[in-house]
Amino acid sequence: MPDFAQDFAKMDRRAAMRNIGLLLGAVSMPTLANCVEAAQAPGALDEPRLKLLTAIADTIIPVTDTPGAVAAGVPRLLSGLLANWASAETRKELVGAIDAIGQLASAGSFADLPFAERTALLRAYDTAAIQYAPPRGPKLTGIAALLAGPPTANPAYLRLKSLIISLYYNSEIAMTQEIEYEHIPGRFEPSREITATTRPYAGVGGLY
């Protein structure tokens, strides 16, 4: 994988300036306000864990030619979810998943590792996590089974990863720079050609 420096060199100046701006926190105000509010709620992560989660989110969705999860505010938003959305059980599972990644570094802290080392460790961890595993817990049927997907080796980590992905791809950064999103499409166009530069459109709500 190209590292950040290589990517940076390939970008045009204009895009680079925009991304630097985003990295420095010049993101839209509502998103920032959400982040701050979420991070201040009781039950949010303490600073060392937030630092670890920031490293995890940055490794899963890094800066490339577009900003990554950190610029999109994902660590603080996820910390807010732990405070405001998660049950005690879910919180324990997700905090456990964060802590488990913290143990991956043989010496020192995962959060302090260089990007390339973090990526190598987490990639191997991710590959192991998605392997099929015999199901635990009650057998799911119907739509619940469809939504849950096949049982995996490390559901706690995948739940964390899934939330990081969801928060990132719902962010204004991702929806305006990474993929296409139209809140009010207006017309329905049933057939559009896909070219090398076409990006998928985000769907919200509804099955279609």
């Binding site: 899963i60 969705i61 890094p62 991710d126």
Partner: peptide, 28 residues
């Protein structure tokens, strides 16, 4: 029912993290 195509949001259970994950999400 209906037919639709995914894209724009990688699944947590598909392989890959990092730039690879972002790149996958850009494909239909």
């Amino acid at each position: 029912g209906g037919l639709s195509r995914s894209g724009g949001r990688p699944s947590a259970t598909s392989s890959g993290i990092g730039a690879e994950l972002k790149e996958k999400a850009r494909k239909f």
